[in-house]
């Protein structure tokens, strides 16, 4: 009985402590590089500079609009803040082969990985694409956004600038 009670307390604490106990690290799971080899997401890093992780798919129009819009400004973003964008495709066997030709065809300069089994998507609690996460210089996920509307990229860049200047975002 006491054990059960203890467990209940543990449970209560762990849930109530969520907001501050959360380390918000990037979960480490295996995804694929576009050449088909394996990459562990625990190895994502950007030398202490901010990282954008964007979940997308070749069949998702808003995703492509977002990444194409950012692509136009990406060079300036990198120059100004050192940010790195990781485009994580959730395409499966049907469309996986189209990822590299699409990325190259569009001339994207992003780091691209594929999550055909949905492992990284599940680990990060992504419902649907596009879904964007922002990671600070310490590798902590500090912000997220689901869906894309024209112009969302400006808010994203404002946040990236704050992070690159070491400010916190709330």
């Amino acid at each position: 009985m006491t054990l059960r009670l203890n467990l209940l307390i543990v449970l209560f604490l762990s849930f109530s402590a969520l907001s501050f106990a959360q380390n918000n690290e990037i979960p480490a799971v295996d995804v694929k590089k576009i050449d088909g080899t394996t990459f562990n997401t625990g190895d994502i890093e950007n030398d202490g500079k901010p990282i954008i992780i964007n979940f997308w798919a070749t069949w998702c129009s808003p995703c492509k609009r977002e990444l194409n819009n950012i692509a136009e400004m990406y060079e300036e973003w990198v120059e100004e803040t050192g940010v790195k964008l990781i485009a994580l495709s959730i395409d499966d066997a049907r469309n996986m082969g189209k990822v590299a030709p699409y990325v190259n065809g569009k001339g994207w300069e992003y780091e691209v990985y594929i999550d055909p089994n949905g492992d990284f998507k599940r680990a990060l609690g992504v419902n649907n694409v596009p879904h964007t996460f922002l990671v600070d210089g310490n590798g902590k996920i500090v912000w997220q956004h689901n869906s894309y509307s024209e112009g969302d990229e400006y808010e994203l860049f404002e946040l990236v600038k704050k992070l690159s200047e070491g400010e916190s975002i709330d």
Partner: peptide, 17 residues
Amino acid sequence: LFVQASYSRKGFGLVLA
């Protein structure tokens, strides 16, 4: 049987399957 071949470089992508 499933076969997919692709060639891509900056500004060009081709997939045959």
